[in-house]
Write a protein that binds this DNA or RNA. Structure first.
Length: 419
DNA sequence: GATATGCAAATCATA
DNA sequence: TTATGATTTGCATAT
């Protein structure tokens, strides 16, 4: 088994975040880049942080454990050098001063392990490794040594590559499992079993290939912990692994499906993906948005008659951490079947993750601060099947209405505005 | 040019 | 000790 996550509990995540935010604003005032910070911190410890790491630290897009480690180093460095920065210091001098201060602040014991620089394999090397992997996914040590020699690589690089490659393969299979985000239940048992790991069990009538290639994303999700505090919890979610059903045929778009699955599927309502983008995490103006990620997607089963789409809204007053549970519970109330829902993390897509043809039946949310995506969405919101909802708030209201309708209750506007 | 992300190399705790 | 799987980072590149 792999290691279990070290449990530091959730202690002081908030403190870390607070510092990270403060740090970013200071850095900007000082006129330092993330890259410079990484380098300067490196002068103190002998091992620098990449621009990437600094970026993620500041953006709070890091699990708490890593966050803490980075925090401790940056914090200590910050405390050391801060006093050398006088208001109005000549920007040209700044880096010089900080460089010196950083070097001088070297701790005596200096026992930081230097991480090996990441190797970049050439395309050709990768092709060869892939071919070798296909032939034998688990070469012996001796074989690996030979491979290393023939490719002019270190043995360890080859060893690690095979390790990671096996890992990647395994993950790919796992992604085909459909499970609910936190209950551990399958999103759809029939589908899950149909496309579950084919490691060894290639069933007689080979399982239908249902899902398009899927991707796992890491997300640091604020979830209510047992003691009812909000904690940041790292989770992986499956993205778009649920086949999108054609609204007329109830068949997955662009995927073959077995008869058995079809019969189960056809009983269901149309599956839609609804994405709700939380407000951009802009340090000061949305204190409620603890969410470091940019977009949350929910996958709901909604009645065919009521497809919903939710474009993002920068002005949303609902924080993600509240929206998601609310949507979940509301979805419960409108669903006539056991609730099937996932929460996904969807990145600020540069390219749509989901293929064009599938967009006809679902909705893609524009990303906050990425107005160029708007036209993309506009193209689809004309679809008469889709009800345009202007914000997460609106979406919640909409769900409430549906729930009320389903239960024959008449909601007036006053009750709606509770959101 | 600076920053944010996708993918995956490197690391590390365990079985 | 080695294999494995979870994590931590960073190269390359998109934004």
């Amino acid at each position: 088994m792999g290691r279990k996550p070290k449990d530091y509990g959730q202690d002081h995540r908030e403190e870390l975040e607070e510092f990270a935010k403060m740090f970013r604003s200071k850095r900007l005032v000082w006129g330092l880049t993330q890259d410079q910070v990484g380098g300067l911190v490196g002068l103190k410890y002998g091992t620098e942080f990449s621009q990437t790491t600094v970026s993620r630290f500041e953006a709070l897009e890091m699990p708490t454990n890593s966050m803490r480690k980075v925090y401790e180093m940056i914090r200590s460095w910050y405390d050391d050098i801060e006093k050398y920065i006088t208001p109005g210091i000549d920007p040209n001098l700044l880096v010089k001063v900080l460089t010196e201060a950083s070097i001088n602040s070297k701790p005596a014991d200096m026992s930081v392990k230097i991480r090996k620089k990441r190797t970049t394999f050439s395309t050709q090397t990768l092709e060869t490794l892939e071919a070798l992997f296909r032939a034998n996914r688990q070469p012996t040590q001796e074989e690996q040594e030979k491979i290393a020699e023939s490719l002019d690589l270190k043995f360890n690089e080859v060893r690690v590559w095979f390790c990671n490659r096996r890992q990647r393969e395994k993950k790919t299979f796992q992604q085909k499992l459909l499970y609910n985000d936190d209950s551990g239940h399958f999103l759809d048992a029939s589908l899950a079993s149909a496309c579950s790991s084919s490691d060894s069990s290639a069933s007689a009538n080979s399982p239908p290939s249902i899902s398009p290639p899927t991707k796992m994303r890491k997300v640091f999700l604020a979830t209510p912990s047992s003691n009812s505090e909000m904690s940041l919890k790292r989770k992986s979610y499956i993205i778009s692994s649920v086949p999108i059903l054609d609204s007329k045929s109830s068949l997955p778009i662009s995927s073959p499906i077995s008869d058995e699955l079809e019969s189960k599927r056809s009983k269901q309502d149309k599956v839609m993906i609804v994405k709700v983008a939380p407000p951009k995490n802009t340090a000061n103006n949305s204190p409620q948005a603890k969410f470091p990620v940019s977009t949350v997607a929910s996958n709901l089963v909604v009645p065919k008659s009521e497809p919903v789409c939710v474009p993002s809204t920068p002005a949303s007053s609902v924080s993600t951490s509240t929206t998601t549970p609310l949507i979940r519970s509301l979805a419960h109330s409108i669903s006539t079947e056991p609730i099937k829902m996932r929460v996904n993390y969807v990145s600020q897509d540069r390219k749509p993750e989901i293929k064009q043809e599938r967009l006809e039946k679902i909705e893609i949310t524009p990303i906050v601060n990425r107005p160029q995506k708007t036209s993309f969405v506009d193209k689809y919101i004309d679809d008469e099947e889709i009800t345009l909802i202007k914000s997460p708030n609106e979406f919640l209201k909409h769900l409430v209405r549906l729930a009320a309708q389903n239960q024959g209750v008449n909601l007036n506007d006053g009750e709606d505005s509770e959101f």
